[in-house]
Design a protein around this nucleic acid. Structure first.
Lengths: 179, 179
DNA sequence: CGCCAATATATCGGCTTGATATAGTATAAA
DNA sequence: TTTATACTATATCAAGCCGATATATTGGCG
């Protein structure tokens, strides 16, 4: 999904500024399956404006720097729906921590230990945070996706808790002591 | 993890060509947590060669077009270990299918149905494929990461199987029938 | 013999990424 | 009071990545 579609997605749920859009992907409901940074959001909003798919309202002052609030136009809504109608691309997972654990033999014990526990702690926090806020009255799609994310995080936490000792106490392996 | 480090990772396990490196990320042991395309691999191999971290051997003929087989040098091995020593970046998941399901109200029933079942079928196949090959004699790290990937895929399959009817038969929702 | 699939290398435009710059506001410590 | 820190907010940029595409050879199938 390109940045333009992601921005439209946030905006069909309600008006927002670039900064607020970013937060949706950093901590909000999209945080666990999509990501976009400012470097993609601002150019995307500019293009969407040019194309007449969103409308801007300038809001200066009000206890914050000037703010540009964007709203989807009917044309934007139509384009968004068309984007969703296309077959989705395959999921992509990028885990540097997994890559690192794959090559456990190349790391010294302490570092591996630290990485493992940081990783596990991170996912544990994620699970707790998600369980904490129990959404009500939201459309079925949002509930479903939240549950999917939670199931995924819980699976990681379970696996890593159960296999921690076996993995960390495995023989040193000695990748290549030489060099 | 940048393309150079990913290539080094494959090469420390054994000599390979660019094409073979790609396959490691397409179907091989890295397929479920990393990805690199030719557009990153070939430039990376060129740079690694320049820097003396890998060595090339040209192998023409032999029942295939000419082939360049790369091998890590001792310097390359050292650099690889240093790369692993750096703190890993946060995991990143990009799921267009999840984004689509999040906005289920915007899709017509048949399309949503089709997307759902394709997605579920894809993960079911993944689980079966991974269960099929039971690796023996591989280092603990590889076993552990394979198990982690399997746990994740199984969680997705379970959740999607259990919640399928609830999700697909939920009220139409009517995103915005107007327009 | 033609056709398709697999092997193999390589490039390129467009987009994303991560870092950084800039600046106003708010809170609280020194 | 001044300083520092954090948050809100927009914006840009180089470096690198992504997906598509070009090119060419070998092997198998009907």
């Amino acid at each position: 999904m390109d940045a333009k579609t992601l921005c439209l997605g946030v905006l069909v749920m309600g008006d927002a500024s670039g900064y607020e859009i970013r937060k949706m992907f950093e901590e909000g409901p999209f945080a666990h399956f999509q990501d976009v940074g400012y470097g993609s959001i601002y150019p995307a909003l500019a293009k969407l404006s040019e194309e007449g798919l969103i409308a801007v309202t300038d809001t200066p002052g009000e206890g914050h720097p000037d703010k540009k609030v964007y709203a989807v136009t009917p044309a934007g809504r139509a384009v968004f729906r068309q984007s969703l109608a296309r077959a989705p691309m395959q999921d992509k997972i990028r885990s540097d921590a997994a890559f690192l654990m794959f090559f456990a033999e190349f790391l010294d014990r302490d570092h591996l230990h630290a990485v493992y526990d940081d990783y596990l702690a991170f996912y544990r926090t994620r699970v707790e945070t998600m369980q904490g806020l129990d959404p009500e009255g939201v459309p079925e799609g949002r509930l479903f996706v939240r549950g999917l994310g939670l199931a995924f995080y819980q699976a990681v936490v379970s696996y890593m808790t159960e296999n921690r000792d076996r993995f960390l106490n495995a023989g040193p392996g000695k990748a290549d002591a030489a060099e």
